[in-house]
């Protein structure tokens, strides 16, 4: 379990996160949702150890995160950040192979190359292996970065569990690829990986997440299974948008549709 306990993040006078507790259980997909500026990415940066919280603790397994060396963390936990720009002409395969770096002793082995190829296959990008990364479209680049993260945690570690942290993995993807990415993530969860995903699309969260954390102004407004979190009152409270929640026609999950007859009023974002 990757556990964030009572996390508070203050930068200057602004409180970005206030006493949030969230747990990423192995074998589950946990989604973090909330309006812009609610603190989703900040929470993820705390979970990766990139940002030290002002108060609260992060634990991986039963040890505090800071007690684990960075390389050891990286063998068990992969992160897909929001898109970063790469102008240098690495090949797609070279980018994916980088995911193996925390596991290397010296140079890449034949096994590392196999994993890189398999990870590319998992995101349906194996035909692009030799292409120059900067020539790909935004969505294709995003999938290659996902393959890099997959390659990083491809095999179970000697001890402990694996974690995958995704920051808006479906941004810039078309409909089919949004579902493909979340199916891949759900598949990893079924394999025992603890997955944390920041999602903008509530219906993707409803369909794929086992557990949802809904943030509002840096605080956890609601936590639980999608069915409990995505209530019309809860969603309107947090997003300022009146919605109807109906049964999904084919899936055992709620379907959230904006109620066009009432006006939407997005919540004010606290300014930093």
């Amino acid at each position: 379990m990757l556990a964030l306990r009572d996390i508070t993040v203050q930068i200057g006078d602004a409180t970005l996160i206030e006493s949030v507790t969230a747990k990423v259980h192995s074998g589950q997909l946990t989604a973090v949702v909330g309006p812009n500026g609610a603190g989703k990415t900040t929470l993820l940066r705390v979970a990766t150890g990139e940002l030290a919280p002002s108060a609260g603790t992060v634990e991986m397994g039963d040890r505090p995160l800071e007690a684990l060396p960075e390389r050891e963390q990286a063998r068990r936990r992969a992160v897909l950040p929001q898109q970063s720009q790469l102008h240098f002409a690495f090949s797609v395969l070279q980018v994916v192979l980088m995911g193996r770096t925390p596991h290397l002793r010296g140079a890449e082995s034949a096994r590392d190359w196999e994993v890189a190829h398999a990870a590319l296959q998992a995101v349906a990008m194996d035909d692009f292996a030799e292409r120059d990364f900067p020539t790909l479209s935004g969505g294709e680049q995003q999938r290659v970065h996902l393959a890099r993260a997959l390659a990083q945690i491809w095999t179970p570690p000697d001890a402990g569990h694996r974690y995958l942290l995704l920051d808006e993995p479906t941004a810039s993807l078309d409909l089919a690829h949004q579902h493909q990415v979340l199916q891949t993530a759900a598949g990893l969860a079924a394999d025992g990986v603890g997955v944390l995903a920041i999602l903008h699309d509530l219906n993707l969260a409803a369909q794929y997440a086992d557990h949802v954390v809904m943030l509002r102004r840096g605080m956890a407004h609601a936590k639980g299974p999608p069915r409990d979190v995505f209530t019309p009152a809860g969603v309107e409270d947090v997003f300022g948008c009146p919605v109807r929640v109906i049964a999904h026609p084919t899936q055992p999950c709620p379907l959230i549709v904006p109620d066009a007859t009432a006006p939407a009023s997005p919540p004010a974002v606290p300014t930093a």
Binding site: P69, R71, P81, S84, F88, F90, T101, H145
Partner: peptide
């Protein structure tokens, strides 16, 4: 060489790969 490769992809990805 390998940490430098990772740094070229970005600071966040390099951090995610366990680079200081």
């Amino acid at each position: 060489a390998r940490p430098l490769d990772a740094l070229l992809v970005g600071e966040e990805p390099a951090q995610g790969l366990g680079m200081p």
